[in-house]
Design a binder for these strands. Structure first.
Length: 936
RNA sequence: GCGGAUAUGGCGUAAUUGGUAGCCGCGCCAGACUUAGGAUCUGGUUCUUAACCGAGUGGGGGUUCGAGUCCCCCUAUCCGCACCA
């Protein structure tokens, strides 16, 4: 019988489904293992071959772990809320709920064809009220918690109130707590809540009609759609992720991720140590001071001016009358500049003198205060001490405005020079302090410490740490997201009771965003909160006495994806996020597979979310994802035909002389090209304008050009997995995606080698001599050589899977099959274990062969074969013999041979004598089972 | 500018982790079976050479009996961050 994958694959897919083979229980004697894929956005384009790459790898691993006796949690779901889904809905003019539904169905159909072992009973969708109930619930918990710096964990806000009442906490209190109104108290607590409402400058994207988080903006443009983003002050919900900055840095040391991704996160969090110092404003009657942050306290003697960011609140208080107009003009100009403009003109220096002076607290020197937008309001205190000699930005500013530059650090004490001659600043943190008062002569590192100690002693500053990480803006002026479980009473936000969750997303007909920032939920005119009855009411009467307005913005895409891995543990629980039993059993994700592009988004938010849930006693591990594998991006491989410049109907094959000058390349659909050879008939039928095409062929073929580009519809290089499943079967697709190269590596998609993998599977199939009534194998014992091949393969495949090196596994299968084929092996004792080895990679063919071998149960229930060392040991070993490191000939020695044996044998051989030439070897290096090298 | 990674035949890649570089696959060449093949099977395929020899893992140096692998310098490509004081 032939290998009929078209019959086999659907047959076993429905068998697995009907038998519930992949259903996982939470209680089990077996050890647990949790393998997770990053769940997809169900976009309208469907899956392309890049998506399943990671899924196939994790599926192989999950199946392997099952065969190894683990109870494996391997779920899948959909990240259905958020901008991409909504943008697609707007483009197609349909309701997002509808398009999401359709897209999910399409994804599911595509996924099912590839034969994954997901437990679909645990599917979650972030847009499902049963799911987002817990997203909203977590938000409520965040709102009701603050970060206790002493305990270094989140605690209920009620505890903070208690502390305030006992007088243990008074930071920033303007008047006694007892005399504060409810509104004043709430406003004060807002400064502490982990989910808080504040007027903050945000990334506003008019085209998308929403605010975006920092990781959703790149180079001043939105990641989704590439629209310009501007800075705007808006009242927004934020998550106080910065409270966790240090723990987010520290936690990286305990997880098994690639160094590069950890580094991406460290950079994003951007921890820097330094000092905060207060600089008094000169001649200030009210004794004003302002705080600056510096990582170079050692250079404080080199400060020649100060700079405030345009948003700094101090500006209007200190600006001199003569400078007021100019300063205000600059501030207005700077504030109205778009992010993109600002970033594009980073090199251009701008700024203005305030007319005011500050006093260097260590030297009592008067130094001018400037305003410039090179100082950012969001970092540190939005004010800096400028040391132009040792900071390139200050240097550029000083040169532009002709401000003095004073050297205070030199590579060595005698390398002091006149900064007037410098072309750049001396930013290095190594060297000796010069002209620096009491730190003169100290090494930079020692001076940093000395200056901090001194300012601390003088009570004008302190050692501190700053982070680049900003709080995560959590409001989106969009429709397709989780509603906030928040209503407003006297403009003060209150959470709706947990028992009323989920707060369902209202169905509105007009879900489009507005350019002004009014959330589309405002279109749900009748959407308000009846406080007394704890329910959403449809009334236009918001009386602010019994009926209150609800928050109209929705949560961002990362809300739903931040805790989904925990929900999979217990996905149908309506009483809690997940049960303690479930989380105690599964703990956290053992292996997480997904793209590195989520390094500064989802992977940070999820870690934060998990740490918070850990603090409040829900999660049991501080880090959610123990091991992380980043699968490489699959790029497209475009094909080109070459059209004559003079004759639109003439196409010239790639390698014909002079083709380059005579033609222009045109993208051609990769589906009508096979191994870079164009299917001429399909090409003519592809588009009407090519119907009359004529060709200049080479060797009777039309050879296309190719290039690696992004996979995109417009380049006709999108490879759809369904087509390949149809043509070669899911098992071939699975093996081929793995065979392409290491999972972690980015690579262009290229079907040129898929035939080879397909041939291999057919060959593998033949090995089993399948007939209508099963396999016609002999019961004869396998030869020693055959057993050796088998056990080598078991060893290799096991090691490969543990190392996540699936491309080499496929090669090993090929070698094994080739050897068994040429040995004519028909021994059951060899072929049966081989089926189990194949099961994680090509589950359909393995299942079919397993049954053909006479088994009644599924191959998924088998156990992984163990290799037996006895088949691998050699009686003799062939040693390469080198002279001075140069390999010359080989000798066979018993496995137990020693250096003396080797040397004796070599000396007795004519070859050996030729090389030794009668002389005694200087040295003999003998590494058992490796090499004999003789130094002559 | 800062940080991270990568570099091996015509192509995708492999190398027991310092021990015969190029496994496996594609492509190509030759052959077998075929009316036929874009089916199947067999053999060959780093370069140079008729062959032996020789050269060879981006370039240059170093450590070592021995380097694709370790160390230093350089180049190229990819990715991340980027006025973060």
């Amino acid at each position: 019988m032939d290998y009929t994958f078209r019959e086999i694959e659907p047959k076993w897919q429905s068998y697995w489904r009907e038998q519930g083979i992949y259903h996982v229980k939470n209680e089990c004697e077996k050890p647990h293992y949790y393998v997770l894929d990053m769940f997809p956005y169900p976009s309208g384009a469907g899956l392309h071959v890049g998506h399943p790459l990671g899924y196939i790898a994790s599926d192989i691993f999950a199946r392997y772990k099952r065969l190894r006796g683990y109870n494996v949690l391997h779920p899948m779901g959909y990240d259905a809320y958020g901008l991409p889904a909504e943008q697609y809905a707007i483009q197609t003019g349909q309701h997002p709920a509808k398009t999401t539904e359709v897209n999910i169905a399409r994804y599911r159909e595509q996924l099912d064809k590839i034969g994954f072992s997901f437990d679909w009973d645990r599917e979650v969708r972030t847009c499902d009220p049963h799911y987002y109930k817990w997203t909203q619930w977590t938000f409520i918990q965040l709102f009701h918690h603050y970060y206790d710096k002493a305990l270094d964990k989140a605690r209920p806000i009620a505890e903070l109130v208690q502390k305030i009442e006992c007088g243990e906490h008074s930071e920033g209190l303007s008047k006694p707590w007892a005399s504060m109104s409810e509104e004043e108290r709430q406003l004060y607590l807002m400064n502490y809540r982990l989910a808080y409402l504040a007027d903050i400058p945000v990334n506003w994207c008019p085209q998308l009609g929403t605010v975006l988080a920092n990781d959703e903006v790149v180079n001043g443009l939105s990641v989704r759609g590439g629209y310009p983003v501007e800075r705007k002050l808006m009242r927004q919900w934020s998550l106080r992720i910065t409270a966790y900055a240090q723990r987010l840095v520290d936690g990286l040391d305990s997880v098994d991720w690639t160094e590069s991704l950890k580094e991406i996160q460290r950079n994003w969090i951007g921890r820097s140590e330094g000092a905060a110092v207060w600089f008094p404003v000169a001649d200030s009657p009210s004794g004003q001071t302002f705080e600056i942050f510096t990582t170079r306290p050692d250079t404080i003697f080199g400060v020649t001016f100060m700079v405030l960011c345009p948003e700094h609140e101090m500006i209007e208080h200190i600006v001199s009358d003569s400078q007021r107009d100019e300063v205000m003009q600059y501030v207005t100009w700077a504030k109205n500049r778009s992010e993109r403009e600002r970033q594009a003109e980073v090199k251009k220096v701008s700024g203005v003198f305030t007319g005011a002076y500050a006093v260097n607290p260590l030297t009592q020197e008067r130094i001018p205060i400037y305003v410039s937008d090179y100082v950012l309001s969001g970092y540190g205190t939005g004010a800096i001490m400028a040391v132009p000699a040792h900071d390139s930005r200050d240097f550029a500013f000083a040169r532009h405005f002709g401000l003095p530059i004073r050297q205070v650090v030199a590579p060595s004490a005698d390398e002091v020079s006149d900064p007037a001659s410098w072309t750049e600043s001396l930013d290095s943190k190594s060297g000796i302090c010069v002209n620096s008062g009491f730190v003169t002569g100290m090494k930079v590192k020692d001076a940093m410490k000395a200056v901090i100690d001194r300012v601390a002693e003088m009570k004008i500053g302190f050692r501190t740490v700053n982070y680049r990480l900003r709080d995560a803006i959590f409001s989106r002026q969009r429709y397709w997201g989780e509603p906030f479980p928040i209503y407003y009473k006297n403009n003060i936000p209150y959470t709706i009771p947990e028992s009323c969750l989920p707060l369902q997303l209202p169905d509105v007909s007009d879900f489009k965003p507005t350019a002004t920032g009014e959330p589309p939920l405002g279109h749900a005119a009748l959407w308000a909160w009846d406080e007394a009855n704890c329910r959403v009411v449809q009334t236009s009467k918001i009386d602010n006495e019994t009926v209150f307005p609800l928050e109209l913005s929705t949560m961002p895409g990362f809300a739903g994806s931040s805790g989904y891995y925990l929900r999979y543990m217990d996905p149908r629980n309506d009483e809690s996020y997940f049960s303690p039993q479930a989380v105690n059993y599964w703990q956290n994700v053992d292996l997480y597979v997904g793209g590195a592009e989520h390094g500064t988004g989802h992977l940070i938010y999820a870690r934060f979310w998990n740490k918070f849930l850990y603090d409040i006693g829900l999660a049991v591990k501080e880090e959610p994802f123990q091991k992380l594998i980043n699968q490489g991006m699959i790029q497209g491989r475009s094909n080109f035909v070459y059209r004559s410049k003079t004759d639109n109907n003439l196409f010239i094959s790639k390698n014909i002389a002079g083709r380059e000058e005579r033609t222009v390349p045109i993208h051609v659909d990769i589906n009508i090209v096979d191994n870079d050879v164009l299917d001429i008939e399909m090409f003519k039928a592809w588009r009407p304008e090519f119907a009359e095409a004529r060709f200049e062929l080479e060797d009777g073929k039309y050879v296309c050009g190719w290039e690696v580009e992004k996979m995109s519809k417009s380049m006709f290089n999108v490879q759809n997995p369904d087509d390949l499943v149809e043509r070669y079967g899911a098992d071939t697709l699975r093996l081929y995606e793995m065979f392409l190269g290491p999972v972690e590596q980015a690579k262009p998609w290229d079907t040129n080698g898929i035939e080879g993998v397909f041939r291999f599977l057919k060959k593998f199939w033949k090995l089993y001599r399948v007939e209508e009534d099963g396999c016609h194998l002999s019961q004869q014992p396998a030869t020693k050589a055959e057993m050796k091949v088998l056990h080598q393969t078991i060893k290799k495949i096991s090691e490969d899977i543990e190392r996540f090196s699936f491309n080499t596994s496929v090669s090993s299968f090929m070698v094994c099959t080739n050897e068994l084929t040429s040995a004519g092996c028909a021994a059951r004792e060899v072929l049966e274990p081989l089926v189990v080895l194949m099961a994680p990679f090509a589950p359909h063919i393995a299942e079919e062969l397993w049954h053909a071998l006479g088994h009644e149960d599924s191959v998924c229930m088998a156990s992984w074969p163990m290799f037996d060392e006895q088949f691998l040991v050699e009686d003799t070993f062939t040693y390469p013999v080198s002279f001075n490191g140069k390999m010359r000939f080989t000798i066979d020695l018993p496995a137990t041979a020693t250096q003396q044996d080797a040397l004796a044998l070599i000396q007795s051989m004519p070859e050996g004598q030729k090389w030794l030439n009668g002389a005694a070897p200087k040295k003999v290096i003998f590494v058992p089972k490796k090499i004999v090298n003789i130094v002559i």
